[in-house]
Design a protein around this nucleic acid. Structure first.
Lengths: 186, 186
DNA sequence: ATTAAATGATATATTTTTATATCATTTAAG
DNA sequence: CTTAAATGATATAAAAATATATCATTTAAT
């Protein structure tokens, strides 16, 4: 039992390092990934039989993290600005472990993963639609578009934080204000 | 002379098809690219000695297209909304030929290309800064951020148009309004 | 301390990708 | 029509990536 947990933790650590390596160079070979993680190529193959298995595990883990984040957020929060701030504050620290949900390259065409992604999207889109009904958000724009913009913007701010162009603590406010208020001076 | 133009046109056509192929599958092999373009792998190598040469040419061509688009746009247009609408209308039809400027995967670490990208960015950033001074755009946000958001949003709408989620003609207004006005209902 | 499992290094095999060479056929120009 | 260049198909070489096997060493559990 504790043995199994040890293995699981090691696997998680490996996943995290593999993710970081691939975020730096999406074309990294398995050998490069193993070196980066400080393990032998043989061990990498023991944990993940093939490249696809690794990519799938990374994607799945990324979805785990997002799902966990959503658990912590109150979707009944009536103020959409507070809601957005809360969720984005939660998501930003996930950093490059999220890279994979954005980069098409890694998209594993897997029914289960796609389904999970769609479920996440659906929760947001419904929340957005509610806010459209009660006039907090514009009604002349599709909720799906707003959702995609939100995630797209989060990916952009991740890069900013990663590149040191912005402090993580300032990120949520910038993202929320950009999305809700736009660039226009009023 | 006309012989040379024939070759150049053929090369352009090949570049376009290669780009489309890579946009669909960024890990496409050279053989897949050649097949997609309906030419032999030998011919592909004749035009582009190696994979990097091809990627470099694609990136360069993409920058050509953006630069050409900028040429058509009046940067002295004082109304920033009209300016944004104009430039985005110009950029959207470039479609997946632009994919490469967004996807990190293809980033060729090439001084010349980086320089050209930076020049393009600089023109926009200066325009944005001017609009901040005359109170058309918010002053509490870095111009660089607005620029990155703009391109990021254009990439997103490209996907929408490509996937048939949106008519190309409706795209510019949505992008401009999203960026300038935000999601908030007011 | 002993034992069994896991690991990393290494060697090696397999597969895939990239690159080059050859040649008959097609194409464009004069 | 003739000629020279360009092309695509094919073969093949070279390189890179992926996968498997072996084994001495390390590690964790008892």
């Amino acid at each position: 039992m504790s043995n199994k947990n040890f293995k699981v933790n090691r696997q998680n650590k490996l996943l995290e390092l593999a993710t970081k390596c691939l975020a730096r160079n999406p074309n990294a070979s398995l050998l490069e990934i193993a070196d980066f993680a400080g393990i032998g190529i043989a061990t990498l193959h023991r944990y993940f039989p093939g490249r696809n298995d690794l990519l799938h595990a990374i994607s799945s883990k990324a979805l785990d993290l997002v799902e966990d984040s959503l658990e912590k957020v109150d979707f009944t929060q009536p103020d959409i600005r507070l809601f957005f701030t809360r969720i984005i504050t939660e998501l930003i620290p996930l950093g490059d472990r999220m890279y994979f949900l954005a980069a098409d390259i890694f998209t594993i065409h897997d029914e289960e993963l796609t389904k999970r992604e769609m479920n996440i999207a659906q929760r947001f889109i419904e929340k957005i639609k509610e806010s459209q009904v009660d006039k907090q958000l514009r009604n002349d724009m599709k909720a799906e578009w707003m959702y995609d913009m939100m995630f797209n913007t989060i990916f952009l701010i991740w890069k900013y934080v990663h590149d040191g162009k912005m402090a993580a603590k300032d990120a949520p406010e910038l993202v929320v204000s950009t999305l809700l208020d736009g660039f226009r001076d009023d």
